[in-house]
Design a protein around this nucleic acid. Structure first.
Lengths: 227, 227
DNA sequence: CTCGTGGCCTTACGCCGTAAGTCTGGCGGC
DNA sequence: GCCGCCAGACTTACGGCGTAAGGCCACGAG
């Protein structure tokens, strides 16, 4: 199935990602992966120590797809672009979010990406502490949003009308009045996309962070002026 | 192993949660669960359709542990308390976050909880749309934060000094300068707890939402006054 | 020509989820 | 008191899983 040449670790990881994208993580086994590569299962173990290491590699590869913020550019724009590309990647590879919580040792691409994020914030005047807050906050927003979006019962391209119908029918209006109201009047209306929630929240976050940053810079110049 | 009486679905779910808490989700199999319950594996299938349904039940049970916001109480306090209890639950059951993204049909307790959150916001004057924004934003924060925290290489109780040492040693200062700086000067300092990041971000979120709510209420009274 | 050696394959083991079928103890109806 | 039912438990069996252990073979260096 594979063009030619000796197997490389990179072949293995990217093929595994494709398999997981198309058929779901549950269907990704060392055997199915080997079959896809035209190779026997045990051959894979010459390139990855065990399946966990393969999964580590897959997650690390996903991180490498995020836009790496550049120091010196407008920090909010860079963070926005990072969030948007991260969301796209995480939706393209819906298995990634679920893997993250079991991977305690980040890969090389992951670390490089994190370094870029922090570097951009520091260059924009964030203190170490404020950068840490911003970093954790923005990450939580992106991951948390992706987690919700991946778990939605409908795909972005779907016609939501029939699903909405079924959902509303199974939702008892008397015991879940507010959920039913929100579904009927907002979420299951044509034009609603969950992705818009992310950008709405992202703008709130960025505005809040800009405030905190301005406070800090003002304090700093006060200190300088008062000395 | 189990006191007595016929097996119930609830016994099964709570025992499975305990097993996953103590030994990790990977060690939870229908066989190990049955052994814990003093029963044969196949007997479980009289109470749950398949393992996926068991996992659904476990996740639903986790949601039932979150504080359900009460309409009529101060919305920010309720949301704060919900976030804090949710974090505690998700850390107590570290497998839950990883399961969420593969569960597309929420359980009964989950729906009831969501209804309570929205109900509290609506009672506080949030429009349907603003409540949807707030809901998605707060959820993303809690889940995203828990996802990060569960994946940390150290436990809350750990002495982080030796881990910090190893981490910093393996982190090349020249290629990851900002990450190394943050680790050295902030994260691996005694007294740092990642949980504090959550409350910092939560306050930023709540302040931003309060602003948006005030804008909306001001608009509303303008409309009334101008008519 | 020899001899590692790197890259792949073969075999085998003990787990897994679960389909299908069997046994049994207690209970409602007579 | 007896019978028949059947929910709830047990037994067996199948195909697939991750991977330990070892074998085979082409090729490049000496």
């Amino acid at each position: 199935m594979r063009p030619t040449g000796p197997l490389t670790r990179d072949d293995i990881v990217t093929t595994a990602m494709g398999l997981a994208d198309r058929h779901g993580l549950a269907k990704l086994s060392m055997r199915s992966l080997a079959r896809e590569l035209g190779v026997e299962a045990m051959s894979l173990y010459h390139h990855v120590a065990h399946k966990e290491a393969l999964l580590d590699g897959m997650v690390d590869h996903v991180f490498s797809e995020f836009h790496a913020p550049r120091p010196g550019h407008a920090w909010a724009d860079e963070m926005r672009r990072r969030a948007v590309t991260a969301r796209e990647s995480l939706l393209r590879h819906p298995w990634a979010i679920g893997l993250m919580d079991s991977r305690t040792s980040p890969g090389e691409a992951t670390l490089r990406h994190h370094d870029a994020v922090i570097g951009c914030l520091r260059a924009a005047g964030f203190s170490v502490e404020l950068a840490a807050h911003a970093f954790a906050l923005l990450d939580a927003h992106v991951y948390g949003h992706a987690l919700q979006e991946v778990a939605l019962p409908f795909e972005p391209g779907d016609d939501i009308a029939p699903i909405a119908e079924a959902m509303l029918a199974s939702m008892p209006t008397d015991t879940l009045p507010h959920l039913a109201e929100m579904a009927r009047e907002h979420i299951y209306r044509p034009g609603y996309t969950f992705g818009a929630e992310m950008t709405w929240g992202l703008e709130l976050l960025l505005a809040g962070l800009a405030d905190r940053l301005a406070d800090r810079l003002a304090d700093e110049s006060d200190d300088l002026g008062g000395s």
